[in-house]
Design a protein around this nucleic acid. Sequence first.
DNA 1: TAAATGATAGAACGATCTTTCTCTTTTTGC
DNA 2: GCAAAAAGAGAAAGATCGTTCTATCATTTA
Lengths: 193, 193
Amino acid sequence: MAIRTTATGTSVAREKLLATASELFYREGIHAVGVDRIIGEAGVTRATFYRHFPSKEDLVEAYLGVEDATIRDAFDRAGEATDDPGQLLELVIEGLADDVARLHTRGCPFINAAAEYPEADSGVRVAVGEHRAWFRGTLEALLTGAGSSDPEVAAGQLVLLRDAAMVGGYLDGWERVRPAFVGAARQAAGLAA
Amino acid sequence: MAIRTTATGTSVAREKLLATASELFYREGIHAVGVDRIIGEAGVTRATFYRHFPSKEDLVEAYLGVEDATIRDAFDRAGEATDDPGQLLELVIEGLADDVARLHTRGCPFINAAAEYPEADSGVRVAVGEHRAWFRGTLEALLTGAGSSDPEVAAGQLVLLRDAAMVGGYLDGWERVRPAFVGAARQAAGLAA
DNA sequence: TAAATGATAGAACGATCTTTCTCTTTTTGC
DNA sequence: GCAAAAAGAGAAAGATCGTTCTATCATTTA
């Protein structure tokens, strides 16, 4: 048994593939990036690729899993930073804005992936749906904790606003969208202007 | 000169190609649809395709041109239906909602296209940018006519909301998004709740 | 009627796509 | 040290990608 492991316990080749593919898929689109590009930039051979991922779509789903885990981690870290529900909401909105401004300047990975995968029961679209359901549910719980008068409606508004911020930040520039997003989000969350 | 013309004066083969490609590009994505599919379903040969469109990207840009023209027509028709600025805004918001509910159930053609075309100076992205600039400008003029206190900010909010409605309608279902969209849009436009 | 041009037909180009294969080398667990 | 398994190397499959080509047919304008 010779699996070249890293500190986290998974294969180093697998992690390199996943990191390279995530970067390329996000920056250039999924159908636009071929397996050759991925294995070339990852410095890995085709055989190694297909040993870790039975097909390209498995890699795509793993990429969305990474994005999902990253956001969940950010939420967890915000939850550890404070116990005050109102302040937590502030941190979350601030974190979302910061994320669009610095990391996700090419739009939302899930929205972009969904644009390329029309079939609602495909693995990719299921992953998108699960992420969005988690996001909506988490916001609703946060808002409930903060004493929102209608957490379901407010969570729906925040989901709406984050979608718009991701799209608008990509296509119109973040400076143009930021004030409208922050203002509307704080209002939806019931925070002071 | 034997160009087989239609009532509008353009080639029937070209119109069939454009209609077929528009349908396929929107429903399945652009990179996912090959030239073979398009000419097959349009009942046209490869040579005819390349006579009317020097490359596939020209067809993609023409597809976005059709989408753009369709929306502009809808705005024009709304403008002819009433002279009252407030009522015109109501018609526009209603029209946008109706559009998402019935026609654009697979998201926004421009947002989806941008997801597949990362290069900002590509012809596709330029077309997307021009459409969005027109949309924003038109809303701003409408809001100015309706006596909005800050037409620029309000137009930005409506652009944001339409993006969100398109994405949310596709991924979460329109019923879930509709109340939030209509409510927020009417508020942004300064209309009675 | 004759020249011009669009449309049809179909083969073929090279490139790239995802996937599978064989063979050797390297690393690890016992 | 030995057996097991992962990684490296590279060829090659078959399909599809966008594109170009040479024909012939049909239609319209001069």
